[in-house]
Design a binder for these strands. Structure first.
Lengths: 232, 232
DNA sequence: GCGACGGTTCGGCACCCACCGAACCATCGC
DNA sequence: GCGATGGTTCGGTGGGTGCCGAACCGTCGC
């Protein structure tokens, strides 16, 4: 049997506006840096450090240090599920309506969606895999765009060169998919790819949410460009 | 999307040792009085009042006033499920082991178990229904043992009369089953029935937990006594 | 009517903890 | 080497909240 103090200690992790905001942000499945979360939650960096320590210590989050960055994400899919269960309870609307909406939206989201500003879901992973297979992306120990990849982005995809040198943001970043349990391409390159696909009408948004689908013309283009089929 | 303050406010309900203890106690499915919960959690009655107000206001608990008593229980099965999800996460042991244990234990618990000190599960509900059908128990507006019921308990079940007048505890109490979604007999009468069944070997405990099963001799006795069949 | 009992209201106290800024450390790019 | 940037440590402050006891109210049983 779980002891009351244990349950209280666990709940206390989420019982703070700032920590709750961090966890909700991380529900998108991405790894955020401490600074990003601090800004998102509207607190000083020092405060964010303390909160992250608590959340990690409590097993809700896991961290990966990279250089001077501290990347943080939800510890495992179980945490994501628990958070979703709780937030589902807080949402207005009848459970039946929510269930229906979830069932239909769910399938679409699993197929393809945007995650922040890049592609995720089966579509995102498929594109990422194709880029890796063709030598445009290297997945050894973190994501990295190859020299050939840069050329490809500029010449084949028509990305303006200066839009690949966008300040401090990493060119490529691995972003974990909770539905696929596999990483997909984020960072500047991910954003440019997503932007291009949307701009050329290869993929289109479904309604106003994050879900996207491949269009008929996109189907042709992606087969030709990346040998991608099976994009149902 | 759920807002961070909302999530934090909800989590704060459980982020207190005393409130957590109350919720865990209520996980047994029974309705407790405010005083019982105060004693259980080890706080003054006044403090318990404040906590119960918050838990009820937050939708975790529901209350029923009866005379000078304030009965409190988990608001709905969804709350029970959520609490179980959270505590499951806090339990040690691999999810797989837990799942296996849960799957086997679950069926047995659903069939029959003790709830505090009386019978619950399908068995508890079946006994309660039989007692009502035979006029020993009245279910109109709360449970009550009839005069005939008292006689029956003493003469047919061999309960010592003074053991039916045990202080302040109600003779009969309705106790809700989360698995059956129906009330079963609690209170002094429920305890005496359970005690007798166990003492005569009509039901026996499975292992060391709460699960119980009807024994072969109990099968014969219960058919004769209450016309109960179908006690698989 | 009375006393006993369960529950509530209200002050007041003490402690916890979220927050910040300043100083500091480590890493990156030059 | 340097400055810029991301992150951490630490002291201090303020507000929130859990707690109690005392007084009070409503119900029960005599």
């Amino acid at each position: 049997m779980t002891d009351a103090s244990e349950l209280a200690a666990f709940a206390a992790l989420l019982a703070d506006r700032t920590r709750a905001a961090m966890c909700l942000a991380l529900l998108d499945g991405r790894a955020w840096t401490a600074g990003e979360l601090a800004k998102h939650a509207g607190v000083a960096r020092s405060t964010a450090t303390e909160h992250l320590d608590r959340l990690i210590g409590g097993g809700l989050l896991s961290e990966a240090r990279q250089g001077r960055h501290r990347y943080v994400r939800l510890a495992d899919p179980g945490v994501a599920g628990l958070l979703e269960d709780i937030t589902a309870r807080l949402e207005p609307g009848l459970p039946a309506v929510r269930g229906l909406r979830a069932a239909t939206a769910d399938a679409a989201l699993r197929r393809g969606r945007t995650c922040y500003d890049h592609l995720a879901g089966r579509l995102g992973v498929a594109v990422t895999d194709a880029l890796t297979r063709d030598g445009l992306l290297d997945q050894e120990g973190g994501f990295a765009v190859t020299g050939y990849g840069v050329t490809w982005l500029i010449e084949r995809l028509g990305v303006e060169p200066e839009r690949l040198r966008a300040g401090r943001r990493p060119l490529a970043r691995a972003c974990l998919d909770w539905t696929e349990r596999r990483p997909h391409l984020g960072g500047v390159a991910g954003a440019r790819v997503c932007e291009t696909f949307l701009g050329r009408g290869w993929v289109g948004r479904i309604g106003s949410g994050r879900a996207v689908k491949v269009t008929p013309s996109g189907r042709v283009a992606l087969r030709e460009l990346l040998a991608l089929t099976d994009l149902d």
